[in-house]
C-alpha cells in the first residue's frame, strides 16, 4: 500500500443507545480506491459520516494526512482536501447547476483555480455544461449524480468519499458512474467508496473491507475478496 492518507482506528459510534459502529479500523492509501461493502444497516454510511465529520464517535480516531480530525466540524474538514458525495446526491434543487458547482468550491478562495476546475468538470461532464443555468432539480437522476460528483471535484479534494453513487440509476449509467470513479484515480485522487453494488465496487477497487453489524469482518485485495466464497455468497449473488 502507498503512503497512508486516511487512517481510521477503533471507531465506536452510537445513535442514542444503539451502537452503530463497534470498533472499526481501516486505512486508505494515497491514490487508492477502497470500498466498504456490506448489507443495509451494516454501518457503511455511518462510517463515512464519521470520517467527514457529520457525526462524531464516542471512541476512536480519524487521522487524515497525519492530522487528527476526529472532533473537527464537517465544514472545516472540506478545506483540508476531503469531499463527500452523499447518498441520494443531495444537490441543491432550487439552485442552478452552475451555482451548485460554485458551492462545491465554497471553501476555496483561489479564483483562477476554481475557474480551471470548473472548465475541467464541464469537459468531463458536457451535459452539465449544456445545462449550467438550469435548476438542478430539473435534471435527471443520472445528471444529478454527475452534478454531485462534479460538485465534489470543485472542492479540489485529495480524498473523495462516495456514498452509494450508483443507487437508483439504470445499468448503463451505473457503468458510467464507475468509469468516472476510475477517472478520479487517473486524475490523482483517492476514493473511499461505499456501495450496495458490491460486484461493481470490487471491480474498480484496489482493496475492500466487508462490514457486518458495525464491525469489519473481512478485508483484503478487491480481486481476492471477489473470488472469496463467503463474499460471493453473501454479496455477489453467486
Amino acid at each position: 500500500m502507498a503512503e497512508t492518507l486516511l487512517k481510521v482506528e477503533d471507531l465506536h459510534v452510537y445513535y442514542g443507545i444503539i451502537q452503530a459502529l463497534k470498533g472499526i479500523s481501516f486505512e486508505v492509501g494515497r491514490g487508492e480506491i477502497v470500498s466498504l461493502i456490506g448489507a443495509n444497516g451494516a454501518g457503511k454510511t455511518t462510517t463515512l459520516h464519521t470520517v467527514t465529520g457529520l457525526i462524531h464517535p464516542k471512541q476512536g480516531s480519524v487521522v487524515y494526512k497525519g492530522e487528527e480530525i476526529t472532533r473537527i466540524p464537517a465544514h472545516r474538514i472540506v478545506s483540508m482536501g476531503m469531499a463527500h458525495v452523499p447518498e441520494g446526491r443531495r444537490i441543491f434543487q432550487g439552485l442552478s447547476v452552475y451555482d451548485n458547482l460554485l458551492l462545491g468550491a465554497y471553501s476555496r478562495s483561489d479564483k483562477d483555480g476554481i475557474k480551471r476546475d470548473m472548465e475541467t468538470v464541464f469537459e468531463q461532464f458536457p451535459r452539465l455544461a449544456e445545462r449550467r443555468s438550469q435548476l438542478a432539480g430539473t435534471l435527471s437522476g443520472g445528471e444529478q449524480q454527475m452534478l454531485a460528483m462534479g460538485r465534489a471535484l470543485l472542492a479540489s479534494p485529495e480524498l473523495i468519499v462516495m456514498d452509494e453513487p450508483s443507487m437508483g440509476l439504470s445499468p448503463l449509467l451505473v457503468g458510467e458512474v464507475f468509469e468516472i470513479i476510475r477517472s478520479f484515480r487517473e486524475a490523482g485522487k483517492t476514493v473511499l467508496l461505499v456501495e450496495q453494488n458490491a460486484k461493481k465496487a470490487l471491480s474498480v477497487s484496489d482493496r475492500a473491507y466487508v462490514l457486518e453489524n458495525g464491525a469489519i469482518t473481512m478485508s483484503g485485495n478487491a480481486a481476492d475478496l471477489a473470488a472469496d466464497d463467503r463474499v460471493r455468497k453473501a454479496y455477489l449473488g453467486a
Binding site: 465544514h75 432550487g94 439552485l95 451555482d99 460554485l102 458551492l103 472542492a155
Partner: peptide, 18 residues
C-alpha cells in the same frame, strides 16, 4: 448562495464547507 444552500439542506451545506 450559502444561505439558499443551508435552507435547502443543512447537512449537504456542511459538506460544501459552509
Amino acid at each position: 448562495r450559502a444561505m439558499v444552500a443551508v435552507s435547502e439542506d443543512r447537512d449537504a451545506a456542511l459538506l460544501m464547507g459552509i
